[in-house]
Design a protein around this nucleic acid. Sequence first.
RNA 1: GCUCAAGUGGCGGAAUUGGUAGACGCGCUGGAUUCAAAAUCCAGUUUUUUCGGAAGUGCGGGUUCGAUUCCCGCCUUGAGUACCA
Length: 1168
Amino acid sequence: MQYHHQEIEKNWQEFWAKNQTFKASNHSDKPKYYVLDMFPYPSGAGLHVGHPLGYIASDIYARYKRHKGFNVLHPQGYDSFGLPAEQYAIQTGQHPAKTTEENIKTYRRQLDQIGFSFDWSREVRTSNPKYYKWTQWIFIQLFNSWYNKDTDKAEDISTLEKIFKTAGNSKVNAVCDEEITSFSAEEWKAFSKTAQEEILLQYRLTFLSDTEVNWCPALGTVLANDEIVNGLSERGSHPVVRKKMTQWSMRISAYAQRLLDGLETIDWPQPLKDSQRNWIGRSQGAMVSFEILSPTLCEGKEANSDSKKTPCYMTGGTNSYLLLEKAKEMRANPTPAEAILWKYLKGKKLKSKFRQQHLINDFIVDFVCLTKKLIIEVDGKIHDYQLEKDEARTLELEQKSGFKVIRFKNEEVIGNIDGVISKIETELNNQFFNLQKLEEKIKESQEKEENIKEKKTNISHKQATPTVSLSSGKGVRDRNYIDVFTTRPDTIYGVSFMTLAPEHELVAKITTEAQKSDVEAYIKATAKRSERDRMADVKTISGAFTGAFAMHPFSGEKVPIWIGDYVLAGYGTGAVMAVPCGDQRDYDFAKHFNIPIPNIFEGVDISEVAHTDKDGTKIANSDFLSGLKYKKALKLAIFELEKRGFGYGKVNYRLRDAVFSRQRYWGEPFPVYYKDGMPQMIDAKHLPIVLPEVEKYLPTEDGKPPLGNATEWAWDARAKKVVSNEKLKNKTVYPLELNTMPGWAGSSWYFNRYMDATNSEEFASKESLDYWKQVDVYIGGSEHATGHLLYARFWQKFLFDKGIVPVDEFAKKLINQGMILGTSAFVYKATSFVRNGCNIEKSNDDVAEKIPTVFVSKNLFTSDEEFETVVKNYLLDHKFLNPNDESLVMVANNPIHADVSLINASDELDIDGFKNHPLNAAYKNAVFILEEGVFKVGREVEKMSKSKYNVVNPDDIVKEYGADALRLFEMFLGPLEQAKPWKTSGISGVYSFLKKLWKLYFKDETFEVSEEKATKEELKTLHKTIKKVQEDIENFSFNTSVSTFMIAVNELTVLKCNKKEILEPLLVLLSPYAPHISEELWSKLGHKESISTAPFPVFEAKHLVESSKNYPISFNGKMRFTLELPLDLSTEEIEKAVLEHEKTIAQLEGATPKKVIIVPGKIVNIVG
RNA sequence: GCUCAAGUGGCGGAAUUGGUAGACGCGCUGGAUUCAAAAUCCAGUUUUUUCGGAAGUGCGGGUUCGAUUCCCGCCUUGAGUACCA
């Protein structure tokens, strides 16, 4: 009886479907095991043989685990939202849902015929409203959460509101927007609802913000960083530009450290972990502030008290971060006068809203009304000796920022509060008029300032008043600082200049008149160069001097400020402290512009290159850091920075918050409407908010996203439903969000949904989540390293924080399967043309016309010249070319792709097939120059693609060789993780293996298996196979177990073994790889149950015990012959037997061996 | 530039607590069967050779009784990443 794969496979696939053989239960006594594939995007092209590779591997593993007694969850679904369906819709008008549905059908048919053991009852589709209902629900959870750095987890937003109500935001340690205004509990309560919402939005884990985004005009949408390759869109390679838009973002940065730490706990491939680490980009260092010394700003005041050598310009915070802390502190500890006054000012008692201890620019003022631009300062005694300074500050505030400042003494406030209040009221009334005047004043003063700058060329600085109280800490800081981030604060004494990115906001402010033209010319030149050019051209050093200087925070020395495009505006603060001796870029810059390169390393030569090594080098010439090694110097430098207030230790991450809005149609709609411009979440019980129908899938004419075309897209807050846009005029009807969610939304949690895929009440039930917990093995491509896999980890950690899922990493182990490449076939076409210039009119047409298209077999030529000769000779021989015209004609070799289905195993082309191929209509009459009667093609390994005619469809393979052969062959190609070329011819090997296996169970035409006891040798074959296959599966080394099967079948064939004792367990071993044939033979052996329920055979070592060993006898490490010796010989006996052997004597040629190495059971080595 | 991975027959690949290099398969060669083909089966297939052997895992060193495996340097290919301060 022959092996008919088609019939067998069809029957068993039907059997599995009918009996729901692979349906997983959420209740089982068996241990659980969760094997997951990355679910596919159902593209219109269907599957090619590369796609199922990972699915086959995971299927083998899942089936193996079932044999091993596990309750296995092995689901499958579709990532069915996405751009291709939408673009197809734009072109054809077909609804994306329809094309998606059709594509899924094709996918399902293709997957089914490969015989996967998926539990289809748990199928998910991200575009199904029943699924995206919960994607929307998760979005709401994120919106309703903030990240508390103190507890280091996400918490409900209500806990934040509670803190605001009782203590304002001064004590809150959250991951939030950068520019946060501080407020007290009273202020919070006084804020309008909208204002409160605005503030909360700055803390939520998903938030609206005006972000610079990657806008792709051709696709009409925003792209995430990982969707851009070399400045072009990943899909379609369209140009991408930066653009500001209001977008939803996800505060993934809150999880940067935990995403990094979590990598230690999971068994994922090293390269993948590396790229996630790289993407998160943690760098530890410090923020350092450098004061800018410019004519108007460097006039410090003489120190009046215990002025040590410490420069004390920064009597307050060194930047807004520190100032904010300070403000909070001061708010918590008001002076008695401040406390009294605040009682009268807070809560709009004077009809105007006041804030206390508030940041204005970089001053902290006591009280301020922002709308009326009025500042009230209460001065204590300390201000007496600070009068001058306070005046300067008043001037600064009034002139630069347009505020009116009024001052009261402590005594005034305490003694005559009524007088003070009436004075404030008067000022408030005056402010409206004053504002206009102030504006004029500002203009004037700015002009004045310019004049001063010009006049003052001598820059000097003196030391200012040291910090003596909290109050005096305010008001020393304005935009006259450059903040830099550095990973090497230990090298701070090596700073000899600073560099700002040309786009840095301070550039225009600090550039001196003399340098203005230089700087402007340079900025103009860099602006012209695109980001890509700048990055590509690393070699050219360019920059310009601003004319300004900064002061070194420790040494007090003057440091010139340059601009240069090697500093990127987008990273860190867009400015660097340049340490030329320790950084190659700074070094190159310094050399190029003749800036000094001070050496701060002990015993290191820096005459040629910078010294970038950290370890083992001691710091020198660095005051208190001298003589210290990197680690100690780093710590001390940060300690001193913090102590003296010039900076603080900081960890910087490259990871940016993820933009979550897409201007697309085919994605999840947001459960969001807008009331007074503020986003409102729709209550979870009204979900899903279903994607509306639209006429056109393109953006609207006024540039709104495609959902702007919907006519039914407004939220009726009273009726709680989506209604027609016409009702927007009603009071309770609001516009809905027009953006949709990005592709990664649905894929960031689907693995949890499989645990309880049909639950309509919950995301997934608690019991199911607690039972399955996490994915045990996840298989998929490495291209998702920084996209899907990072976002999914982020959401999982968030859901974990909220107590929704029980574990904070969703996949314990992950394996990246390698890509299957195509083996393209090339035929070499001769393109003949007539040489220009010679009797073109006369000869051109008739000469050329007579020449047919010629193809030359691959091995007939090795060079272009040879190729031309071969073709010409052929043309002359066959009279296509007149010998007189020979010199006129030139022939060029033009390789073209031939469809791989036309090539046989020996690289020979099916010529008729080629001529009749629909794509080769032009070559119907072509002639082929053969070698030894056949036409050979050239072959090359390339990525599988339609245009290269090297795509192999699994349907054809399954039809001709069967699913079992396909499965075995894909595994046999090579290691799972490795990229490897597909060559269909190789499949005959595994196909004949299956036929050979089949034959073991048959005698002539009938199924016949003997009940006889197996021989020792047969048992040895079986058990060595059990051992190897089991080890291989557990190591995901599937290619080697296929060869193990082949060896076993070959051996059993030689032994003519047809014993049930051997052949029955053999089927269980094979069934994960070739389930159909195994089921068929299993049932023929009399089993009624599916083979998938059979336990895995148990390996017994006793069958492999040997009594003798065929020792390799080597001389000086080279094996020369083998010698069969009993294993129970002692070392001495082995040595004796070997040395007495005639071949040993011959090999030694009379010499005595110096040494004999004997490893019993392994090898004998004779050293001569 | 940096990081990682990999270089083994005509091809895919196997072998690593250091111990017989080339398993298994494709392709190729010869043979059997057949009127013939397909299919199947058998034998051979790293190179070289004076048929005794000898050399051989990208190249050059090293450690070792012994290295595809470990170490150092270099070359090549692939992947990722990039003025990240």
